[in-house]
Computed example of a mutant assay.
Amino acid sequence: MLKLDGIASFVAVAESGSISEAARRLNLSKSVVSERLAEIERVLGASLLHRTTRKVSLTEDGAAFLEKAARIIRDVDDAVADMAERRGTLSGPLRISAPVTFGRMHLGPALYPFLAKHPMLEVTLDLDDRRVDAASEGYDAVIRHGGLEDSRLVAWQLAASQRLLVASPEYLAQQGTPGTVDDLQSHRGIFYTNRGVADWRFEGQQSALVVRAKTAFRVNNGDMILDAALAGLGIALLPTFIAGAAIKSGSLQVVDVGLPTATEYIYVAHPEGRRASAKLKELVECLRQAFGSPPYWDVCRHPM
Rank of each mutant, 00 (worst) to 15 (best):
A110W: 09
F102A: 03
E67A: 11
E60N: 12
R71F: 15
A79I: 07
L44H: 00
A110D: 04
A46S: 14
S57N: 09
H50L: 08
L44R: 00
R87M: 14
R42Q: 15
S91Q: 08
S57P: 02
A46H: 11
D77F: 10
V100M: 07
L58G: 09
M105P: 09
R95C: 01
R74W: 15
S91G: 07
M105S: 15
L48Y: 01
A70N: 02
D61K: 10
A98R: 01
R42F: 11
S97D: 11
E67R: 15
D75Q: 13
T52I: 04
L48M: 06
K55I: 00
S57K: 03
R86E: 12
G92K: 00
S57F: 02
T89I: 14
R86D: 09
L107T: 01
F102C: 05
I96M: 05
G103S: 03
L111E: 07
A69D: 02
S91F: 05
M83N: 13
L49K: 14
T52P: 01
G108D: 13
L44C: 03
L48A: 03
G108K: 08
I72S: 05
P99C: 04
T59S: 08
M105G: 08
G62S: 05
F65K: 01
A98W: 04
R87C: 10
K68A: 12
